[in-house]
């Protein structure tokens, strides 16, 4: 790695001031797990890193808001979320997804804000958060804004954030009565990045579905909602509906080929995993013996 300068601002506002809008060689660093990989590979050569490690401790806390929403500071580590009682109560699907997210050491260091801002399509939390309807509050030099996580990603490793904007907080509406699941499918080894992630959140009453959100990730350039498949689920849950929804999702998700598998194969995975994810959310047994 090449030498660079490290700035250690004491507040998030100060950090934003140090970032600047135009210099791509200046970037914020929090846990740094993803950034270190990019720097070691030489794909990112910073002149200055703006460390977020000494900003206000409030940005590392997870609390329960007035309306039961989870308010997760951007600097909260992924492992703090995994073990947070508020998360276990308010959105158990998040805690469960974290268990197979990368590995313990990464989760100990990586932060929620960094995880989202990195915009690697193979990340596990974005599909879950989109399914739950989460938003991020973003601070910038001139204005602050709230962005649904669904609208955060512009493409492959790309967000809608400006260089001098920082995610301050993640706001997750209470899971409430919604049934949710996240299934991760790996094709090269058990501890691999996902070839496909499927998150679902369903507002149901028996077999009736009031609202369904499905999010496909990893097999696509960015997390994607197959809205036609979601609409099909509103026909009410049955084997035939699940099959149609899986097929529709495979058709519309924009699956791409990569080292995890061809697009044709991953479309099949989408077909199967959308169905399995809905069954998992609703705790409907599948033909597959579930292995923990």
């Amino acid at each position: 790695m090449m030498p660079f300068e490290i700035a250690e601002p004491r507040s998030l506002r100060e950090a934003i001031g140090l970032l600047g809008r135009d210099d791509p060689s200046v970037r914020p660093i929090a846990g740094g797990t993803a950034l270190m990989l990019m720097m070691k590979a030489g794909v990112f050569r910073p002149t200055r890193l703006v460390s977020l490690r000494s900003i206000e401790p409030a940005f590392a806390r997870t609390t329960l808001g007035a309306e039961g929403e989870l308010r997760i500071g951007a600097l909260a580590s992924l492992s703090s979320l995994e073990h947070s009682q508020a998360v276990l109560n308010g959105a158990p699907v998040i805690a469960k997804a974290l268990r197979t997210l990368s590995n313990v050491r990464v989760r100990n260091v990586a932060t929620v804000g960094g995880h989202l801002a990195h915009a690697d399509p193979h990340m596990d939390l974005p599909p879950v958060l989109i399914a739950l309807g989460a938003r991020v509050s973003v601070l910038g030099p001139s204005c602050d804004r709230l962005i649904p996580v669904e609208n955060l990603f512009a493409g492959y490793y790309e967000t809608v954030l400006a260089r001098d904007e920082l995610i301050a907080e993640l706001i997750v509406p209470p899971q409430g009565g919604r049934r949710a699941a996240y299934l991760k499918c790996t094709t090269r080894s058990a501890d691999d990045w996902p070839a496909l992630g499927v998150a679902v959140a369903l507002d149901t009453d028996g077999t009736a579905v009031h609202e369904a959100r499905i999010v496909i990730s990893a097999a696509t350039h960015k997390p994607t909602r197959p809205v036609a498949a979601e609409a099909i689920l509103r026909d009410g849950i049955s084997d035939a509906v699940l099959r149609r929804a899986g097929a529709a999702a495979a058709e519309e998700a924009g699956v791409i080929s990569d080292t995890h598998g061809s697009a044709a194969y991953k479309r099949q995975l989408v077909r199967v995993y959308v169905e399995r994810a809905v069954r998992a959310a609703l705790a409907i047994p599948t033909g597959k013996q579930r292995r923990a």
């Binding site: 490290i6 070691k40 492992s79 590995n103 050491r105 260091v109």
Partner: peptide
């Protein structure tokens, strides 16, 4: 060199981290 093998594990403030990805 990528935090995947765990050979560089160190405890920092009681938490296991990958030393090769930690400045």
């Amino acid at each position: 060199g990528q935090g995947l093998c765990g050979c560089c594990t160190v405890l920092v403030n009681g938490n296991a981290v990958s030393g090769c990805l930690y400045l």
